[in-house]
Design a protein around this nucleic acid. Structure first.
Lengths: 131, 131
DNA sequence: AAAACATTTAACCAAATGGTTAAATGTTAG
DNA sequence: CTAACATTTAACCATTTGGTTAAATGTTTT
């Protein structure tokens, strides 16, 4: 039935890591510059151990990498793994574009067949519903 | 410091919903066809109430919508909300492409200097970033 | 060596998560 | 009306999560 392969677990941990506002915020912060735990802690309303835990989650998910520099421990974003998440979403969303495309084609064919239809198809492209 | 606005909470719940293999699997399953709780339960190694809970999570995150049809309750994918997640990821990843782009430009400039080529390489990248 | 600094670990806690089984609620069919 | 069906709700449980404070570990500075 449901084979929990490595890829699944990886996606689990990536999406899990992204499911927290603080962690997403940290990610944004370490995109451009390496930052220490102290630096990061200064920006949030929580203790340093809490930040350490968030960093562990992000590191575990492969979204950041850390290096030691003296007594500081710097971390920076590692966006490579994030592409797994992107790919899942893109694959998932493909269907939606297909559906939209199918709908568009269907409507266009209908219009083709009956060019005197009322102008109610105008907003079909952004479509909420398909039936 | 950290304003937990609606968008943040929405992203929290979307990524949280996506952080479970079963739920991602269900999403894939209801992309194309509406399915009942029984239908879905048949494919997983867990009880019907467990599936119901997963569906609640997905519905709460706005990733599926449900309708009642007699004693059945059908659900189908609602990918609209998923674009929020996509947008976050894309925005986040932009930097990475920028970094790559900067690196490429740097390397090309180095090559330029070393081989004294004609100045035709100037605008390799799409964006003249900072400097 | 001692003090100050940067960070982690340990122990704890409340709440959320992901599952279970058993009972309750609606809905359709005989 | 009653029985069968589809689903949800309730109560429970173990584990994980996201935070805390206090103590421990390394590293630099003086």
């Amino acid at each position: 039935m449901l084979d929990m392969n490595t890829n699944d677990q990886q996606l689990d941990s990536i999406f899990q890591a992204l499911s927290d506002t603080t962690r997403r915020n940290i990610l944004m912060r370490v995109r451009n510059s390496d930052e220490t735990v102290s630096d990061l802690t200064a920006h949030y309303n929580m203790s340093m151990p809490a930040i350490t835990k968030h960093l562990n989650v992000l590191e575990q998910a492969g979204l950041i990498i850390r290096r030691k520099e003296g007594r500081k421990r710097l971390c920076r974003a590692e966006p490579k793994n994030l592409t797994s998440a992107m790919e899942w979403l893109e694959y998932y969303q493909e269907f939606w574009n297909e559906q939209l495309e199918n709908l568009k084609q269907f409507v266009e064919k209908s219009v083709d067949r009956n060019t005197t239809l009322s102008p109610s198809h105008k907003n079909i492209g952004k479509g909420d519903k398909h039936e």
